[in-house]
């Protein structure tokens, strides 16, 4: 019962944070609030006993991505652009999609239901085998690195590719090119800032 009310409190906190993210104009406040959103989501995961997910959400969602957003804000104006055109069609579409999602959520299995499809396929085997056979208490790590090692390799390659892509986009092609360009880079930026002013 306590868990239920904690969940109610945390989810209503999420709604309040979302409301302020939509309402506020200052981008720094929005970045800080999205960090708070991730931290609240992590608290919800802890409440549902998904400690590994909560750990990732707290470290990545509210830690690193907030810092990266703040670093990206150096190149952006501090205020959101003025944009308050109201559209009836968008509102109707939002309401219809929202009602459909709520309707779909009713047919999901209950939280922790042992008869849910996700708990009937391979999960029982993982839980039974993990400790007696492999002496690994944390089943999540065992599934991640051992049973589903191939998936995790794919994830690491995705992280690697995405990181390389963003770094190349931001720092301008390859390393040798960057060293060559480093001589005239400040000049280019000065010209750009003059044009802005």
């Amino acid at each position: 019962m306590v868990e239920f009310w904690v969940n109610v409190f945390l989810i209503s906190l999420l709604v309040v944070i979302t409301f302020y993210i939509i309402r506020l104009k200052s981008l720094i406040a929005i970045v800080a609030l999205s960090g708070a959103y991730s931290l609240t989501a992590a608290a919800i995961f802890v409440n549902m006993d998904a400690v590994d997910v909560a750990f990732t959400e707290a470290a990545v969602g509210s830690g690193i991505s907030t810092i990266l957003f703040l670093a990206a804000l150096r190149y952006l104006p501090l205020e959101e652009a003025h944009h308050t055109r109201f559209s009836g069609w968008s509102l109707t579409l939002c309401i219809i999609v929202g009602l459909m999602l709520i309707n779909a959520a009713f047919s999901l299995p209950d939280f922790g239901d042992p008869g849910a499809p996700a708990h009937l396929h391979v999960a029982p085997r993982y839980i039974e085998e993990s400790y007696p056979l492999f002496h690994i208490p944390n089943v999540v790590t065992n599934v991640l690195a051992s049973y589903r090692g191939f998936d995790t390799l794919g994830e690491v390659v995705v992280v690697f590719t995405a990181g390389i892509g963003v770094i190349i986009l931001l720092t301008g092609s390859t390393l040798s090119m960057r060293f060559r360009k480093s001589e005239n880079l400040p000049v280019q930026n000065k010209e750009a800032s003059k044009k802005e002013t």
């Binding site: 690193i64 810092i67 990266l68 670093a71 990206a72 150096r74 492999f134 002496h135 690994i136 790590t141 065992n142 690195a145 051992s146 090692g149 995790t152 690491v156 992280v159 690697f160 995405a162 990181g163 963003v166 770094i167 931001l170 720092t171």
Partner: peptide
């Protein structure tokens, strides 16, 4: 064997994630 494999594999994951995060921060700031 499982413990050894998992530790080595997780080390690979950790190295990549660490370097990508730091590289992104370098690139942004």
């Amino acid at each position: 064997a499982q413990h050894l494999g998992i530790i080595v594999v997780e080390l690979g994951v950790g190295l990549t994630v660490f370097a990508v995060m730091l590289g992104l921060f370098y690139a942004f700031s």
